[in-house]
Measured scan of single mutants.
Amino acid sequence: PREAYIVTIEKGKPGQTVTWYQLRADHPKPDSLISEHPTAQEAMDAKKRYED
């Protein structure tokens, strides 16, 4: 089974940042970016789909 994890990042100019959620996995390479999402819920949904 595949495993993934969610990383929170800040995008934008200082003082005007927006939080994004990255879905990452250690396949095919360590810390590979799988997808980016504007909400934590979307990231969790993507994580479930990826791991299923």
Rank of each mutant, 00 (worst) to 15 (best):
46 A>N: 03
31 D>K: 10
33 L>C: 07
8 T>Y: 07
15 G>P: 15
44 M>I: 12
14 P>W: 08
2 R>D: 06
45 D>S: 10
4 A>C: 14
44 M>Y: 13
10 E>V: 13
41 Q>F: 07
33 L>K: 03
37 H>Q: 01
45 D>L: 14
44 M>P: 00
50 Y>M: 05
38 P>Y: 08
37 H>W: 14
47 K>C: 05
42 E>C: 06
45 D>F: 10
26 D>F: 08
2 R>A: 09
21 Y>N: 00
34 I>E: 01
26 D>V: 09
51 E>S: 07
26 D>Y: 09
20 W>P: 00
51 E>R: 06
44 M>V: 10
35 S>Q: 01
11 K>Q: 05
18 V>S: 11
33 L>E: 03
36 E>R: 02
52 D>I: 12
20 W>S: 04
47 K>F: 05
28 P>E: 08
51 E>N: 11
49 R>L: 11
20 W>L: 06
25 A>I: 14
14 P>K: 11
19 T>H: 06
47 K>I: 04
34 I>P: 00
52 D>P: 05
6 I>N: 00
32 S>K: 11
38 P>R: 14
8 T>G: 05
1 P>Q: 13
12 G>M: 05
17 T>N: 06
12 G>D: 04
13 K>M: 14
43 A>E: 00
23 L>D: 01
31 D>L: 07
52 D>S: 15
40 A>N: 10
19 T>D: 03
49 R>K: 13
13 K>W: 12
36 E>N: 04
18 V>M: 11
50 Y>A: 03
22 Q>C: 03
2 R>G: 11
16 Q>H: 12
31 D>S: 12
29 K>Q: 12
7 V>N: 04
6 I>A: 00
40 A>G: 06
4 A>V: 12
9 I>E: 03
30 P>I: 10
9 I>W: 04
3 E>G: 15
31 D>H: 13
6 I>K: 00
2 R>N: 09
42 E>A: 10
14 P>L: 09
43 A>P: 00
17 T>H: 08
22 Q>R: 01
30 P>G: 09
19 T>Q: 07
23 L>Q: 00
50 Y>S: 02
11 K>V: 10
1 P>N: 14
41 Q>T: 09
51 E>L: 10
49 R>F: 09
2 R>Y: 13
16 Q>A: 12
52 D>Y: 13
36 E>A: 03
33 L>T: 05
46 A>W: 03
31 D>I: 03
37 H>M: 02
51 E>K: 07
50 Y>H: 06
44 M>S: 08
29 K>N: 12
23 L>P: 00
32 S>L: 08
8 T>V: 13
37 H>K: 01
18 V>H: 10
38 P>C: 09
7 V>P: 00
50 Y>N: 02
31 D>P: 08
8 T>F: 07
13 K>S: 14
6 I>F: 03
47 K>A: 05
27 H>K: 11
30 P>E: 08
24 R>V: 07
25 A>E: 03
44 M>R: 10
51 E>G: 06
49 R>C: 08
16 Q>V: 09
37 H>Y: 07
6 I>W: 02
38 P>G: 08
26 D>I: 08
17 T>W: 12
23 L>H: 00
25 A>H: 05
36 E>D: 04
43 A>G: 02
24 R>H: 05
38 P>D: 06
39 T>M: 03
52 D>V: 12
37 H>L: 02
21 Y>W: 15
5 Y>V: 05
15 G>W: 06
5 Y>E: 02
10 E>G: 05
17 T>Q: 11
35 S>R: 01
50 Y>W: 15
5 Y>M: 04
20 W>Q: 03
8 T>A: 13
19 T>E: 06
7 V>S: 05
14 P>Q: 10
7 V>M: 07
34 I>T: 01
25 A>P: 00
31 D>A: 13
10 E>S: 10
30 P>R: 11
28 P>K: 08
42 E>D: 11
13 K>V: 14
13 K>P: 15
39 T>H: 04
1 P>V: 14
10 E>Y: 10
52 D>Q: 15
30 P>L: 10
9 I>L: 07
35 S>N: 02
28 P>H: 11
9 I>Q: 04
26 D>T: 11
46 A>C: 04
12 G>A: 05
28 P>F: 06
6 I>H: 00
43 A>V: 05
49 R>Y: 10
37 H>F: 08
2 R>M: 11
30 P>C: 09
52 D>K: 13
23 L>N: 01
4 A>S: 09
9 I>A: 05
6 I>Y: 02
13 K>I: 14
22 Q>W: 02
30 P>K: 13
43 A>W: 00
33 L>D: 01
21 Y>I: 01
25 A>V: 14
28 P>Q: 07
5 Y>S: 04
37 H>T: 01
10 E>R: 09
28 P>R: 08
20 W>D: 01
28 P>V: 07
1 P>S: 12
28 P>S: 06
40 A>P: 09
19 T>W: 07
22 Q>M: 03
32 S>M: 10
44 M>W: 14
49 R>D: 08
43 A>Q: 01
26 D>E: 06
22 Q>E: 08
36 E>G: 02
45 D>H: 10
29 K>H: 14
44 M>A: 12
41 Q>V: 09
30 P>S: 07
17 T>P: 07
27 H>T: 11
7 V>E: 03
8 T>I: 14
6 I>C: 02
18 V>F: 07
39 T>N: 10
44 M>L: 14
2 R>T: 09
5 Y>T: 04
41 Q>G: 08
25 A>Q: 05
1 P>K: 15
15 G>D: 07
42 E>V: 03
29 K>C: 13
21 Y>R: 00
17 T>D: 04
40 A>R: 15
